[in-house]
Amino acid sequence: MKFVFLIYHDEKTLDALPGKEMQALVDGALDYDQEIRRSGHYIVSNALQRARTARTVRVRGGKATTTDGPFAETKEQLGGFFLVEAKDMDEACALAARFPPARLGIVEVRPVRELEHS
């Protein structure tokens, strides 16, 4: 089964980290990538730029409107995601808990839904 890990963190907490600590966190995340690649769980992962770089797009009545910023203004923001292969939810959660930034933020684990043509 495929699962996504949605990584949420408080960007202010990250911005306040000394450069060395931030780099240690990045290295930890990259090491984790390697580790779950070797164990065969990894499909893809991406870090996202800060929420303030986002644009939100809606189309109503055939007209597209674009607003600056993320869709939801929340204390914690989506900072990145993983797509992994795991046996079940328990295995996915155990895997998510080993992601080093899970010590600072939150990981939402959600199964992927396979869409099929009607």
């Binding site: 990259l30 870090a47 996202l48 730029q49 770089t53 809606r58 189309v59």
Partner: peptide, 25 residues
């Protein structure tokens, strides 16, 4: 804006950040 669900919901577009390893890696 051409994603069909943009007509029903909202699409947040965000650039990906390439993580750079430190020298040790």
């Amino acid at each position: 804006s051409r994603i069909p669900l943009a007509r029903r919901g909202s699409i947040e577009v965000r650039p990906i950040k390439e993580l750079k390893p430190s020298a040790r890696r």
